[in-house]
Design a protein around this nucleic acid. Structure first.
Length: 495
RNA sequence: GGCCCGUUCGUCUAGUGGACUAGGACACAAGAUUUUCAAUCUUGGAACAGGAGUUCGAUUCUCCUACGGGCUGCCA
């Protein structure tokens, strides 16, 4: 860990599914640390478990990282001097080191069958005992080992654990940690299919790729002693270890699919902005004053500091994420927001009942609408609900039709008068319409609240709508009158 | 079960022995504003897990208990 050594960190996901919110935070913190220290971020793919490997998730993973804006300097798809960056393509390297350890009698072949071992483990568990491997293959004669190998018997390779040896290491977050090797097992480093296990491949790669700081989830804290043994046995220097507290679901349990949307992709689909996700993630397990909640990625880079990491696992709070997303939406350039919404519209309103006169100039219309809804939405998804009635025909629910039945307002009269007033409206702009209709309400001796309620119901089929007068202006004279007449008809035709 | 780690409002957190009547944010409640809904502003309720030490003094240091999380795989 020489001072002049380059800062190199890595994000090393295993391609088993979509990018998870917890992994995203790990990626972000690594990214922040690299940026802060003008270091490099390496993307390494830990695909040593063929059974769990899902090839498509690689694309999903890189896509999500890029969408979040977390680019990497080296690694998968980026190349670099320490490749290949997929562990499945580095088999020979791991096998070589494993052989080295065998030759040095620091590791040994194990011919026990997985089934057999599982049985032993089960047995020990049943008896309430801690299972440790019985080391039967450690005592095999050299000749017998040779013979079995020659015969082609499958074997795994196990570390020969140093006896009663204390392992010390320092974690940035959790401080000094000491573990006695008696708590460990002769763990497997190479499977019988010649592929390495996590602790072996991660260690070798971190060393070979000259990773200076290992920043990963707290679930790896207990693995670290095993890795330290490998570092020592192979004569590698240690990186700095930093373990990040876990992100828990809202119920305090480990985050999993049961918690609904936990993948970045799901949040993207809901219309959460990448900045908002990163901002929220930075609030989990890290803080720099506790007084500020909204800060840009740029600010985060400036302030980021490993020493302000927490130890306590944090629960994921969807409400706060939504609030942050709302902040970013409100602060966004309206034209950019319009573009994002237009993009979603193309798929979102596909099978709805579109107004025939509005199928062109989609984005132009949305630009007019955005100022009305920008401060009302928390996600891009919600924008669809607000925008829909501008583009689609409205229909009136039973509730809408009977809404004024028990109210004092003479809805049919209001509608008739409004129709007349708007038919005579020459300049169809928000302020002009407002002036006109305010006057009308006054003439009819109605509070603006009670008056607008009728028009709102007619135009939106709903108690809630965007600001009414601007909405009328955007809807246009023809459409507005049409809806007013329709509603009038609907409420008078009812029996 | 064993080992490792943790514990401040419902949630995220500030706090590193006296400045703490424990601060901020989300959420919640009330009010203001208002053409609805939001947004905005004001106000309010809400926490140091429990016990024993150390100390003139503990949210802050130590120990124990309780609770929570992680690991304990030929998963990562």
């Amino acid at each position: 860990m020489g001072k002049d050594k380059e800062t190199r960190v890595r994000f090393a996901p295993s391609p088993t599914g979509h990018l998870h919110i917890g992994s995203a935070r790990t990626a972000y913190f690594n990214w922040l640390f690299a940026k802060k220290n003008q270091g490099k971020l390496v993307l390494r793919i830990e695909d040593t478990d063929a059974a769990r490997h899902v090839e498509q998730s690689l694309e999903s993973l890189t896509h999500a990282l890029r969408w979040l804006g977390l680019g990497w300097d080296e690694g998968y798809e980026a190349g670099g001097g320490s490749g290949p960056y997929r562990q499945s393509q580095r088999k020979a390297i791991y096998a070589g080191y494993a052989q080295k350890l065998i030759d040095a009698e620091k590791a040994y072949p194990c011919f026990c069958s997985p089934q057999n071992l599982a049985q032993q483990r089960q047995q020990a568990e049943k008896e309430g005992k801690t299972y440790t491997y019985n080391r039967c293959c450690l005592n095999l004669k050299r000749s017998e080992v040779q013979e079995r190998i020659a015969k082609g018997s499958p074997y795994a390779v196990r570390i020969q654990l140093p006896h009663r040896h204390k392992i010390h290491f320092e974690d940035t977050v959790y401080g000094n940690i000491t573990v006695d090797t008696s708590q460990l097992d002769d763990f497997i480093i190479l499977r019988s299919n010649q592929l390495p296990t996590y602790n072996f491949s991660a260690t070798i790669d971190d060393a070979l790729m000259k990773i200076s700081h290992v920043i990963r989830g707290e679930d790896h804290l207990s693995n670290t002693p095993k890795q330290i043994i490998i570092y020592h046995l192979l004569g590698f220097g240690l990186p700095c270890f930093t373990h990040l507290p876990m992100i828990l679901g809202e119920d305090g349990r480990k985050l999993s699919k049961r918690h609904g949307s936990v993948s970045i992709e799901a949040y993207k689909n809901q219309g959460i902005l990448p900045q908002a996700i990163l901002n929220y993630l930075a609030l989990l397990g890290w803080s720099y004053t506790g007084q500020q909640d909204i800060f840009s990625v740029q600010e985060a880079v400036e302030k980021f500091d490993l020493s302000r990491l927490h130890k306590k696992p944090a629960r994921f709070d969807h409400q706060k994420l939504l609030w942050i997303n709302g902040c970013y939406i409100r602060g966004m350039d309206p034209d950019r927001l319009a573009a994002l919404i237009a993009q979603r519209m193309k798929t979102g309103l596909k099978d709805k009942d579109l107004r025939t006169d509005w199928d062109r100039d989609l984005e132009k219309k949305i630009k007019m609408i955005v100022p009305l809804i920008q401060e009302r939405i928390k996600t891009l998804d919600e924008a669809m609900d607000w925008i829909g009635p501008f583009f689609c025909k409205v229909s009136y629910s039973q509730e809408a039709v009977h809404f004024f039945d028990r109210k004092k307002t003479d809805a049919p009269l209001v509608l008739q008068k409004t129709i007349e007033a708007l038919e005579n409206q020459t300049i169809f702009s928000g302020p002009n319409i407002e002036q006109n209709l305010r006057n009308l309400a006054q003439e009819m001796d109605l509070s603006l609240r009670n008056y607008t309620q009728v028009v709102r119901m007619a135009l939106w089929g709903n108690k809630v709508s965007p600001p009414l007068f601007e909405t009328i202006a955007i809807l246009g004279k023809e459409c507005t009158l049409h809806r007013l007449k329709n509603y009038l008809e609907a409420i008078t035709a009812k029996t």
